[in-house]
């Protein structure tokens, strides 16, 4: 869906919009700063059903914008919880690195042991064959 293209088409005076097209485009314009294309405005002036739809969308947009004024009180423990997590994070990151380093060392040790075992077994077999 290319809204810019559809919007540009709607802006054209020659484009005759029907209800379905108007309702598809209304959410793009109602509640936004974009000017309502003339073709849509013309349609709204003559179509009560679409006008009601536009009014409802406008109400929704206004309610959403009103939400900007309201705020929620954070839990009283938020600040302390944040400060405690600053310390925890440092510790857990350090511990995390320690665990990773340990795992890598262990993995390397296993690989070395396996390779060494295979080599010694290969040498023994070669000596036995000769």
């Amino acid at each position: 869906m290319n809204l810019d293209r559809i919007g540009a088409a709607a802006a054209s005076r020659t484009y005759q919009l029907r209800c379905k097209g108007v309702r598809m485009l209304l959410p793009e314009y109602i509640g936004s700063s974009a000017p309502l294309p003339e073709s849509i405005a013309t349609h709204l002036s003559s179509c009560l059903v679409c006008r009601v739809e536009a009014d409802r969308l406008r109400q929704v947009a206004e309610l959403l914008a009103d939400g900007r004024q309201s705020s929620w009180t954070p839990p009283s423990t938020l600040v302390d919880a944040v400060m405690a997590r600053l310390d925890e994070k440092v510790e857990s990151r350090f511990m995390g690195r320690l665990v990773v380093a340990g795992a890598v060392a262990l993995g390397l040790g296993v690989v070395v042991a396996v390779v060494a075992t295979k080599r010694s077994s290969a040498v023994s077999t070669a000596q036995f064959d000769s």
Binding site: S70, T73, P74, L78, V79, M83
Partner: peptide, 22 residues
């Protein structure tokens, strides 16, 4: 400075929490 950061948290906690709720 953790005390300074605490001040920042206190000053901004309502806005941050409100946005998070939304």
């Amino acid at each position: 400075d953790r005390d300074a950061f605490r001040m920042l948290v206190e000053q901004n906690q309502r806005d941050v929490y409100t946005l998070a709720v939304r």
